[in-house]
Design a protein around this nucleic acid. Structure first.
Lengths: 232, 232
DNA sequence: CGGCAAGTTGAGCTTCCTCAAATAGTGTGG
DNA sequence: CCACACTATTTGAGGAAGCTCAACTTGCCG
């Protein structure tokens, strides 16, 4: 039964993964490229929207600063993902490189023009936006009403999905506890304690603080699904 | 009576929010219409995606059932909003009418074709999806890390915005506590207690359980922003 | 006027947050 | 290559927000 779940999720994985791979591979192939150093910003919340970007390699993070000074990490973006489609005129959130990043940049003007000229371009854009929407709504559903442990389990699995390293069961996070905390909407302490629980149950272990080794993915999946009996 | 109020407010809504304003007013004008009774479903989570819908009048709710039997209300949809753009093939969530609803229905096939033929249609779709994405991401940021009281205040204000009744300061919710709770990610008891706090501070009062009268909108805004000193 | 569903209120408990301190990790200058 | 400084992470103790369970009140409809 666990097996069944695993393969289910690997199907899910494939679907998720292929979606991002697919986008505009061909359509954006000739777009100008920009190289970002780690921690460099592409744009800040409130900036005028000028381009659409596509992550070619590396990892980025989208976040918002809240009124009380806290930070909500909206999403992490990996190769194949698009960035900058949020609001109409101004950026909805800030986009920062976590690692070194290669970005393809398309001026909005060009986007509009291509949409006129190549209907296929528009379809791709729609498809991609629908994906992001689904992901975001998914996050809404999963952030609410789940324990910190379940959130962390989900995060780890989702991360596996993104990076596609599920065969090695070794994960390079490329981010600190604070990023995880701000993504999951909990404190760093809680993230740390949740990791401790996972370690205590031999579900995972940490090679370095940002390198996770997964020992019991079935349990992880059970936790993420909220199906696990002892979620403590 | 309901119909009249809703469609009035739809005009108001449009004025207030240029975002979904335009969408497909012209482009969908000739789409076939479907009438839904209150509590009728348009589709369920997992159904094959066959159409795109546009709410012409009334109010709908999008929700997901979680593994543990709980429900997450993803969004409420009001006149001008589109529905059904979530996932690729299957519906991401269920869509249910809260009130009587008039829906315009466009088969996906037609959507695709029009996207080929009329680039403007594609642009509109993209714009609309970007709006939904922004809204959803907004929800992510606001659901996390905010107290129940702040969430409720935000909800009330957002609802004001949606229905555009901010001049009368009287709100018809059209939904029970459970819907609010499932949207905000808290329990009905907490919603009830939060209402009690607002009443105790004379910020609002309840004409009926689903009819709110706002006395101190400034305080409500302060609460929603998390700026209020006594958030208790 | 009963009966049922929805909403409110109370008590105790759990989870997570906050504040504080200890430990591990990382990079730097000598 | 080592010691030091600084940051990130972990761990502990106590408190607060929200959940659960349960009783009570209100509203609505036959």
């Amino acid at each position: 039964m666990l097996e069944a779940r695993v393969s289910e999720s690997s199907t899910e994985y494939r679907r998720l993964h292929s979606r991002s791979e697919g986008f505009s591979e061909a359509l954006l192939v000739d777009a100008p490229v920009r190289l970002l150093a780690a921690h460099e910003h592409v744009f800040y919340e409130g900036d005028a929207q000028t381009h659409i970007y596509r992550v070619k390699s590396g990892m980025m993070r989208l976040y918002r600063l809240l009124a009380d000074g806290r930070r909500q990490v909206i999403a992490f973006r990996l190769p194949g993902h698009l960035i900058g489609l949020g609001e109409h005129d101004t950026q909805f959130c800030s986009a920062e490189a976590l690692t070194e990043v290669v970005l393809q940049c398309v001026p909005l003007r060009i986007v509009y023009r291509r949409m006129q000229e190549e209907p296929r371009f528009g379809s791709e854009l729609v498809r991609c936006l629908a994906d992001e929407l689904a992901e975001s709504r998914n996050q809404v559903a999963f952030l609410n009403r789940r324990s910190a442990l379940e959130k962390l389990a989900t995060f780890i699995l989702r991360f596996l999905t993104w990076t596609g390293e599920d065969k090695e069961l070794k994960l390079e996070l490329h981010m600190g506890r604070e990023d995880i905390a701000d993504y999951l909407g909990v404190t760093v302490e809680t993230v740390s304690r949740s990791f401790a629980k996972l370690k205590a149950q031999s579900v995972v272990s940490l090679a370095q603080t940002q390198t996770i080794i997964i020992h019991d993915i079935g349990r992880l999946i059970a936790l993420a699904a909220g199906t696990d009996s002892e979620s403590r």
